[in-house]
Amino acid sequence: MDDTYDLYKTMLTIRRFEERALQEFATGKLFGTTHAYIGQEADAAGIFSLLGAEDVVWSNHRCHGHFLAYGGDPYRLAAELMGRQTGLVGGRGGSQHIHWKNFYTNGIQGGFTPIAAGVALAEKVKKTGNVCLAFIGDGTLGEGALYESLNLASLWQLPVLYVLEDNRFAQTTPTPSAVAGSMTARFAAFGISTWELESSDVMQVQATARAALQHVRNTHPAALILHTYRFAAHSKGDDTRDKETIAVLRERFDPLQIHASRLSASQTQQAEAEVGTLIQDAFTRALADPFPTLAP
């Protein structure tokens, strides 16, 4: 099946959702914080195009792209970001703490990595054939819980895929200032097979992820290291990086531009129109929804 268009539409949905969310912060309709996925869309679109409905996903603070690629409703996500009763978790979690079907996120770096291993163990025990994905970042490599879970995932041969999205900055700290040694060697040291890709091309991400996932479906842990670029700030406006450098990166590594070359002009226009309506509806509906009240 040719999913060229669907991959583009998924990436565009993420891009437009995140842009709108950042915009709504400026208008004061969103409060708290948000972590935009702009620039990394190829990772989510490529990987989630390969998942089954019962596979389990653990994501992190930068989870909107994963959620939307998972098939999540932008309206429920927008409502959650705006603290509405109709949000994914009724306004209790907000941007970083959502749950829907087999998709979970939490805002503690590395904290869910052993939980993902536990999920994988449960699926293995139940013989469901489902796998568990855990999305971490370069910043997560500083957390000890990750290494405990890598050790156990390998010892017990658990069907868990650790997806490491290296967007080269942990908040404001460049990766070379925070990560010693080698990323791949970290996984190799635990005997975990690792796939690595330096690309913002969704087709390449998909191909690499397919290989890694095949390994996991044979009940082995695996790691997928994706070197990517974050074009937006860590959260709302806290970008200390050089604007010109980011602009150049955006010119060269925008996953939407890279993939658009495979589509016709009418297809990209169609996607813009569909996604535009979807996002507009999502935020309009969410904005009209009531705020939750605390049970007495």
């Binding site: 979970y104 052993p114 939980i115 999920v119 449960a122 139940k126």
Partner: peptide, 13 residues
């Protein structure tokens, strides 16, 4: 940490 984390994942599922 992993013992309790694993238990949490198992319990969730």
């Amino acid at each position: 940490s992993a013992i309790v984390g694993m238990a949490t994942g198992m319990a969730l599922r």
